[in-house]
Design a protein around this nucleic acid. Structure first.
Lengths: 149, 149
DNA sequence: TGTTGACCTTCCCAATGTTGGAAGGCGTAA
DNA sequence: TTACGCCTTCCAACATTGGGAAGGTCAACA
């Protein structure tokens, strides 16, 4: 399977696949005689997993750890479990944080009549902001800004 | 007001303030004779606004939009509300995805509750995800990896 | 008055993840 | 065979944040 096909099947761009190989997030696959990368179905599965985790906001480092949970056959299952539990806990906290944000925004949106008038509690709130939703670390933040060309 | 004081008062680091000026998110303020940037209270308000919007997950692009609405005395509250609703929807979808991920990890953890790990169904659950949260552009994404020094 | 220490300035660099392009080699269908 | 679309590598850029160097400035204190 070409890199192009693997890209299409996984939802990860060819560029990204090469990059992931370069940073050793995925292993370097075999090459054809012509030097083309040759992918198998499991590789696509892994890529799809990465894609999904990325979409959910996991960093590459975190995905590395996640992947290793499944990949490393020689690891004691107790270790795997321990790491998984840590990850789950982190996930729960992140979810809570996001729910806070959503709740705040929803509250503001409800209060906002959404008409032609300039009164808008959302802006008022943003302006005054003693920011809430702190307390789970140094601002794990949502960079929305991801290349919308 | 010095940039340092403005930073402290607004919660935006001096580095970031200069950066925001550089990318024209905020206007370039006046300088003292010595070339120091000189901030007024309204500037601090604006910075605080930015800080809070950032914490709530708005992208710089969105903040630009929000700021222009904020600065515009005659804006319609509907415009602001629309932006907020998009954010909420995005948040909701990501929360759902995270919950799914947590469930998968929990499954993995259960799976290896014994001492010997059987072949955990590696990515089966995860891989099935015809990824959600698509359709509003190239994945407004959460870089969890935000410099935890 | 001079010195010290805390501030400011600009500039360059790092890392994160992703995309774009250039320059050239392969593979296949007409 | 030629054309076109894929592949290869390398280099640069984006956005956001922090780190640091080299030098100027300000306020306070001896």
């Amino acid at each position: 399977m070409n890199i192009g096909q693997a890209a299409q099947a996984s939802g990860v761009s060819a560029k990204m696949i090469r990059y992931y190989e370069q940073i050793a997030l995925i292993k370097a696959v075999g090459r054809t005689a012509a030097g083309y990368r040759d992918y198998a179905v499991e590789d696509v599965h892994e890529l799809r997993f990465i894609r999904r985790a990325r979409d959910l906001g996991f960093s590459i480092a975190e995905i590395t750890e996640l992947l290793s949970l499944w990949r490393d056959r020689s690891r004691r299952s107790a270790d795997v479990k321990a790491i998984a539990l840590v990850r789950i806990e982190d996930l729960r906290q992140r979810i809570a944080g996001m729910e806070q944000m959503a709740a705040t925004l929803e509250h503001l949106a409800e209060c906002c009549s959404g008409d032609e008038r300039p009164d808008c509690p959302i802006l008022d709130d943003l302006e005054k902001g003693e920011y809430l939703a702190q307390g789970h670390g140094p601002a794990r933040r949502l960079h929305g800004a991801v290349h919308k060309p």
